[in-house]
Amino acid sequence: MLSRLAESLYWMGRYVERAENAARLLNVNYYATLETGGRVSEEWKPLLDISGTKGGFADHFGRADAHSVASWLAFDRRNSSSIASSLSRARENARGLRDRIPSEMWETINRAYLDLCFQTDDVLLRDGLFEYCSAARDLSQMFFGIAFATLPRDEGWSFMRSGQLLERGDNLLRLLQVRYGAAGTGPAQAAVDNHRWMAVLKTVSAYEAYRKRVHSGLDPRVIAEFLLLDEAFPRSVRYAAANLHDALVQIQRLHPQAYPELLRQASWLRARLEHADVDDILERGSPGLDELLIDFNEVGSAIYAAYFTT
């Protein structure tokens, strides 16, 4: 397939996943803060860290509060990772793939683009953020659902899947980095706030799955273990790494022996997550969250070098 299209599929997968993650993050936290009494900026600043958009935010806003952060993460086109920006870019890539992807996929993303990418703060004023975020999440689920049901399992599928999983691993690692404290404070000190940990789980749609799997309650260390290393939960870091590897193996099959280094990197990332203990990651930093995040992004660079720059 054309390199340009492969790249578009990859980015389309990433942007839709990113929009969904941003929508979940915002939705969960916006409502979670309503019931807590802490300082406003303490509740909102972490969201900027998680989304990696703190610098840009400071250029345009003063105080980080419910209004400014929600607006920045949801509608603001100046924020290249906002829901609106991500959907718009995903849609642009999909537009370049119109002849390649099923019409239903295109129509779904196009409809979402028309509905969600031209909204303003008015949504907040009329208390419409929940619907907005829900619609963005629904879009992602429907979009990937249609792909799952109708997109041929060829290279195109694998490239889209690679982008989606890489983004998923990346986003979750950032979330964990912030919530467990980049400074290395252990889970014990991180927080005993039941409420906040529930929010973390809900941000990745893991709350119900966690409860079913773990009956001992909300322990930050166990939560981290679940989110990082659970083999079966489809939004865990390990699951993302394993499936990313699988997608790359599928692509490699069509181009045997072409890029051994890329597969080696993906497979090393996968192996580390399969064999690491949660304490290795959180306590001993071997590999630490930062390192895992770097590994994910290096696989991304290697995909780029191997397939998109021919």
Partner: peptide, 13 residues
């Protein structure tokens, strides 16, 4: 264009 022929760039070459 290469060798008098037109080619497209694909992930398979």
């Amino acid at each position: 264009v290469d060798n008098g022929r037109v080619w497209m760039r694909t992930t398979a070459g």
